[in-house]
Design a protein around this nucleic acid. Structure first.
Lengths: 206, 206
DNA sequence: CGTGATCCTGACCGTTTGGTCAAACATTTC
DNA sequence: GAAATGTTTGACCAAACGGTCAGGATCACG
């Protein structure tokens, strides 16, 4: 269970199925609204069997959140000093939008956690996340000082990127209700929009 | 209870206290995670007494959501054809940001509902909301056709406004964890940022 | 001040919740 | 093929859940 290496074939399969089912349930119902029976049903296991792999409901939730923050920050971490600043930020926006398309459940799990006051990940927010935002904000500030980027608060700029991109995952049903798209096609339109939008906003005013 | 006019003093007071407490609980715990005991405790009433005013947990939730959508759309509805298009949209952004500052719990209640698939308000989304978005998108399109606004998908523009402004309510604890602001002062910085940001993005490219 | 309507409560109900446990069942290993 | 290890289950538990109800307390009003 909590042991590191010695995983059997069955353990690997079942923990994966449990975490997948739990992601479905937690991301739509929130922690409090989720039940072990729902997760067990989704994973095709009995409830006692589920609890054989994870000691408690909280343990499943914790496991899901554990790896999430790192994955979530990778697109920002990949923002480099090289190349044109505007295109560097636009590329970050598009990477983040891709996350919303590929991992919408993870985005909603994260949103649920924040909405509930982030009781389990507040430490990471004021730790790793804050540090990374500080670092990248400083980079953006140097770009702005060099006149390569319109002047604006770098932190609020980052918030706007999180907000606009995660919106397509977190508010998916609203977006679909308004656009009536077929499949995920509206993500292409969103990519076009966001790229143009940020290019316009970031371009230094002459 | 469901009766229209004849409300006594005590009824007015207690229903208000219940709805206020319920807003606290539903907006942070979600529908499934909220319990009647929490709401009753928050309202300073016993659980049976709470159920004297509302017949069920669902009835409280429904009542909260009922008025919400209208209030939520007022800022967009107020967007008029008069004046400079860029400033008209910026004014909408700032009105919407004000909603996030003044009614953060309502914003989180709405976000929770959407995250859970909008089971109770899907009708309004594909109805009133969609109609209003269609109408205002058409207005934006005429501005763009007249060369008064940069060309971009009006619907995704509206999504971006919802996302960036609601972010300050829905992801409040994350924003505070990164900025460490005193009180609500960061809302002023957000207003400055968003106004500049949207002016830059919306200004027609010459 | 009395009386009818409103308001409030403790005790209670059936169901669901997260979680336990001994025992049965599989699987791997020697 | 038997022993050791790993997996699964039904039966069960206490607590918490949404909700009910009879009756007592309190209120507004003539």
């Amino acid at each position: 269970m909590n042991d590191a290496a010695p995983q059997t074939r069955i353990q690997r399969e079942n923990t994966a199925r449990i975490l997948d089912a739990a992601l479905d349930v937690f991301s739509t119902q929130g922690y409090g609204g989720a039940t072990l029976d729902q997760i067990a049903r989704g994973a095709g296991l009995s409830k006692p069997n589920l609890l054989y792999y994870f000691n408690s409901k909280a343990a499943i939730h914790t496991t899901l959140l554990a790896g999430l923050m790192q994955t979530w920050l990778d697109p920002l971490r990949a923002m480099r000093r090289d190349g044109d600043p505007v295109e560097e930020i636009v590329a970050y926006v598009l990477r983040k939008l891709d996350m919303s398309r590929i991992y919408p459940r993870e985005s909603r799990l994260f949103a649920n956690e924040i909405l509930q006051g982030a009781p389990r990940i507040m430490g990471q927010i004021t730790g790793d996340l804050r540090d990374l935002v500080d670092e990248k904000s400083a980079l953006i500030a140097t770009w702005q000082a060099a006149g390569q980027l319109a002047a604006m608060d770098p932190r609020h700029l980052i918030f706007s990127i999180w907000a606009t991109t995660q919106h397509y995952a977190d508010f998916d049903v609203q977006v679909r209700g308004i656009l009536h798209p077929e499949g995920d096609r509206h993500f292409d339109a969103a990519a076009v929009f966001l790229a143009d939008f940020y290019r316009g906003a970031l371009r230094p005013r002459v």
